[in-house]
Amino acid sequence: MTDIALTADTTFRPGTSDAEIEAAAAKAARNRRRTVLFWRWVILFVLLGGWEAGARLGIIDEFFFSRPSAIWERLVDWVVNGTSEGPLWLHLWVTMEEALVGFALGSVTGIVVGIALGRNRMLSDIFSIYIKLINSVPRVVLAPIFIMIFGLGLASKVALAFVMVFFVVFANAFQGVREADRNLMANAQILGAKGWQLTRSVVIPSAMSWIFASLHVSFGFAIIGAIVGEFVGSRHGIGLLINIAKGTFDAAGMYAAIVVIMIVALAAEYLMTLVENRLATWRPAPLHDTQ
C-alpha cells in the first residue's frame, strides 16, 4: 500500500500507460539504490585503503593506530583460535548478557515508572526532584561503587547498564504519557474506558513512539555500562579484552574489540527497527513523490 515512487522531474508524453509509468518508477528506484550503494562502498574503500596505505608508508603511526589488515588478522585469529583469555565467544557472550539483562530490567522499570509518574500528577511532583538529583550524577562514577557492592561478576555490570538505560527510558515514557492527546483520552473515557483500560488503550500506544526512540539509543548505553564495568573490574568480557590490549600496547587488539562491539550494536539496532516497524503499521508511510 505504498505510493508509487515517481521522480518529480519526470514528465511523460501524453498517452503513457500506467504500466510504463510503473516500470519507469521501478527503474528509477533501482538506479537510486545502486548509486547509494556504490558511493557507500567507495567511501569505505577509500577510508580503509587510506588507513592501510598510510600505515604502511609510515604516515600513520602503526603503534597507536594499527592498520586494517592487522585488525582483520587479529579478528580472524580470535574467531579461529580464541583470545589469550579464552574463546572470543565467551567474552562476547558475557558482555552481551550483562548488557541485555541490564537493558531489559532498565527499560521495563523505566517504562513502568515513567507511565506511573506520568499518569499521577502528585507522585510526579513529589519524586521529580529526586529523579533530577540522581540523574545529575554521571553514571560511570557509579562503576567502582557497584563493583564494591556487587563484586566482579555479572551483577555489578547489570547494575551499571541498568542505571544507564533507566533514566533515558523513564524520561521518554514520562514525556510520552504527558503528550497523550487530551481529545483521545476524553473520547476513550466517554466510550467507556476506565482506569487500566484507558492506560492500555490510549496512554501506552501514544507513548510508544517516544519509548521506542529511547530504546534505540539506550541499548547502546547498556553496552557502554557493561564495558565500563568490565574496565573497572572483571574476569571476562570485551571490556576486559580492551583492558588487556591496553596493558600490552596492543593497538590491533583494541581496535578488533571495538569492531566486535560495533557489529553487535548494529545488529541490535537492526533488530529493534524490525520490531518497531512491525508494531507501527498504523503510522502513515512516508510519501515517495519527491524522488
Partner: peptide, 12 residues
C-alpha cells in the same frame, strides 16, 4: 455519546 470537532479516532 460525544462527537468531537477534531479527529478523535485512535490512529493505532
Amino acid at each position: 455519546g460525544f462527537a468531537f470537532q477534531t479527529d478523535a479516532l485512535f490512529p493505532w
